[in-house]
Design a protein around this nucleic acid. Structure first.
Lengths: 203, 203
DNA sequence: TTGCTGACTGACCAATCAGTCAGTAATATC
DNA sequence: GATATTACTGACTGATTGGTCAGTCAGCAA
């Protein structure tokens, strides 16, 4: 009937978070049943409560633990790079775009949807992820301006514009895009975006 | 205790949709109780069922009836305009940006969030709203290219990039942005975007 | 082999909420 | 004014589901 019991205390939290992320991404937070999360993780519902006090805490843990490593990796990759600013900007955006298929890519959309029910989480995301990501981009652009590789322009105003197409593509792919044929491919989009952006920033 | 009964058959559907939209926007579809929708509309819950068979139908009616007039108005405004392409593009994006405060601005975010639970609605939105909106933009850009006002470039690839910052700003304002101080103002964002875009498209 | 610990289970409880419907009252018709 | 019609009400129900907990059993130590 049921699979035999196993005791894997340290692996459980990760497995539960992964299962929850997959289901939340598909159906949203409210519409996901913890029984389904448990079944997907191969455990009983009660086990979830050994590791997470409530459904909301599970969601919070998900966001906090699965998102930050991603961003940290991005920051390190950017710090290692030290070529000309246009190339750095190109690489940075391409690296971001390449992560669109990771399971964690669903998290931003979840936060958008649930920010009304989780204001604290919205603030956390704004400050720890968005602000840091934008700061990273702003730094690269500012360096380019300082070096004369970009024309003088407010880097903080350009940064959100530089990620906007990626964000839009990310949200689209995880939601509506799953039910509709892709209009222009993501590669075309990224290439065109970089073409436009770098030309717009040229001195 | 309760307000005296009134009979206003033809005004009810609009009021119910408006109340539902406000609450869906705030809490999401699943987390919104029909009792709350009824209270906000100033009626009893049963009355909702005189006009909408189910909660899902209410959501569908909301999207279909409140979104299309918006787009139609935009299409008409664009058709009336007949100046040089850069100015038309400017006006079009500015007009879109100006609608970000309307209650209907919450609908795209709702569809993003619920597309998994309402595939048909996602398809409807993709075909009737997104595709038409992009076609509108594509036409303007293509006209500019044909007239030599823009450099030769695939208009269909540029269109999504031209709206991306608006879409991002829209989603942000309705969700995370409500819990966090605005980083760059929307006017700055739009102005910078137009500056970059028109420069990138210049021959 | 035996006994113990605690990770795990799943039936259960309590609360929530979409949807129903018998009854009420506002308007229309005569 | 009397009667008919129907928009409207809100208490109710059935189903769902987050959360609990008494009991079970895998794995380890002695």
């Amino acid at each position: 009937m049921s699979t035999p019991r196993t005791r894997r205390k340290d692996a459980r939290p990760d497995e539960i978070r992964a299962a929850a992320l997959a289901l939340f991404a598909e159906r949203g937070f409210a519409a996901t049943r913890l029984d389904d999360v448990a079944r997907r993780a191969g455990i009983a519902k009660g086990t979830i409560y050994l590791y997470f006090p409530t459904k909301e805490d599970l969601f919070r843990a998900l966001v906090r633990q699965d998102l930050l490593p991603n961003l940290a990796a991005l920051e390190q990759a950017a710090a290692a790079h030290s070529g000309p600013a246009p190339a750095r900007l190109r690489d940075l955006l391409a690296t971001m775009a390449a992560r669109m298929d990771a399971p964690t890519a669903a998290i931003p959309r979840l936060i958008l949807a649930e920010s009304g029910n989780f204001p604290a989480l919205a603030r956390f995301y704004a400050e720890e992820v968005v602000a840091r990501g934008l700061a990273l981009l702003t730094r690269v652009i500012a360096a380019g301006v300082a070096a004369g590789e970009f024309r003088p322009i407010d880097p903080a105003a350009v940064a959100p514009l530089a990620v906007a197409p990626l964000v839009m593509a990310l949200l689209w792919r995880g939601s509506i895009g799953r039910h509709v044929p892709a209009t222009p491919g993501p590669e075309t989009l990224l290439a065109t975006h970089l073409d436009l952006l770098l030309r717009a920033l040229a001195p």
